[in-house]
Amino acid sequence: MTLAGGPGAVLIIVPAYNEEAAVGSVVTEIRTVVPGIPILVVDDCSEDSTITAARMMGADVLPLPYHLGLGGAVQAGYKLAFELGYEYVIRLDGDGQHDPRDIPAVLDALRSSGCEMVIGSRYLLEDSNHTSFLRSLGIRFFRLILRPILGKPVLDPTSGFVGVNRAALQVFSKSFPLEYPEIEALVVLKRRAFRFLEVPCRVRPRVAGKSTITPLKSVYFVIHVLMGVFVNILKFERRRWRR
């Protein structure tokens, strides 16, 4: 499918790294749920056949020549979507954890609410058990940290199931965190006085592969994200003082 943006145009972005076992079924599921919407798999320089698997199922692929990490891959997709003139972009992970059946809800909220960003939140559902203890602990911690910064509660700040409109796309094309982007992205949006909304979404176990999160990486994650949030607040305050 040739990508062609324009007013009202929607693009689905799927960042993927070594997801040959899962990405094909993710693309197929998305095509079944929203058949007319183009899918762009951003391949973060995978060492396996992720690109072939995605193309075989009918997705467009943006192959990165060098491994950038999740944030860099997502931002590359945002940049292309912005250049091509897309108005809405929905991002979900290539490991199959996000249920594409929730795409219409995210898109409807994006179109009708006027919010610049819509987050698919697993915690708005009664059955929200697909989270490890460590991750759950981290999410609770960041909820507390983000509440005063964002001025409203956010239940699922680490969700990778996110929809953005063109205004947010423009901001993220220029400024997007490279590692662990979700939480920092919220603060980046807050700096621009943008709004966000959460809608319920289902999270499933990974289709294939293993999560790379270890206790040590979790500690690094918390420190890294705290630093990122702190730096963004400093930028925010500096802008306010200049006014």
């Binding site: 943006l62 860099g72 590359a76 292309l80």
Partner: peptide, 22 residues
């Protein structure tokens, strides 16, 4: 700079490929 260049190359390659196919 590396990240920006990598993303730029990827986007341009994608657009060249699309044009070629067209």
């Amino acid at each position: 700079a590396n990240v920006a260049l990598t993303q730029r190359i990827a986007v341009l390659e994608f657009r060249v490929r699309t044009l070629d196919e067209k």
